[in-house]
Design a protein around this nucleic acid. Structure first.
Lengths: 114, 114
DNA sequence: TCGTTAGTTCCAAAGTTTTGGAAGTTCCAT
DNA sequence: ATGGAACTTCCAAAACTTTGGAACTAACGA
């Protein structure tokens, strides 16, 4: 009989997936940004440069699973990046990548004084 | 008995509604642009400067009611403008209005060469 | 090894958007 | 008037997104 009885699911590190700049899609990015919670997330993260999820989630005051869902939309569109650091995850805005593919877009998001 | 028996609905000219620049909302505009059909509409219209709905709808090859729905999303967000001209409607992109409120955004939409 | 913390994924319910045919309105020409 | 063309709105079905609690995983410290 082989090794273990109950590996419930993936027992390997599980990389965090991010699209490459060449795979960025304008409609997908616009859609990710078409939500006030997500725009706020981008602004909070950008203002700090980098942020751990807990701090971001605490500021937004949403249930963690909901906040995690929205952050995923941003990450999968290419707006934010996440890297693991111990038991935390450090999030940042992909400013240079966005700027190189859609010049001016980051400024539009961050500079709105409505 | 007053005047008419069956006015089924509004019997008055029915103005086409457009938000004022001050009422533009970033998330609403991003959301309106977060769809490939609508991005294409903006590009087609902008390339012509002005366009009547029929011509636009014919180019997109969608059922008219569907195309009309998408154009409405754009108009209500503030991206496009429509004015009546006889039985036609002439559509255009609100370039200056968008530029004044969200400088750089129109360029992002029109200049993407993906 | 166990307990705790950080964060994600699962899942079903709730909510929203999209679709397209049919019906309706408005305008113009005859 | 009546007819037709150009649009829009209605409406219900289908498709998608969002929500949040519960279950889960992975990393760390004692």
């Amino acid at each position: 009989m082989p090794v273990k009885a109950s590996v419930t699911k993936s027992s390997r590190p599980e990389r965090i997936r991010h699209p490459e700049v060449d795979a960025f899609d304008l409609a997908t990015i616009m859609r990710a940004l078409g939500d006030p919670v997500r725009i706020e997330m981008v602004r909070e993260v950008d203002a700090e440069g980098e942020m751990i999820c807990t701090d971001l989630y605490d500021r937004l005051g949403l249930p963690r699973s909901t906040a995690s869902y929205h952050l995923r939309q941003l990450r999968e569109a290419g707006v934010t990046r996440a890297r693991a650091a111990g038991t935390n995850r450090i999030v940042s805005v992909r400013r240079e990548d966005l700027e190189s593919r859609f010049p001016g877009l980051v400024d539009v998001i961050l500079r709105d004084d409505a």
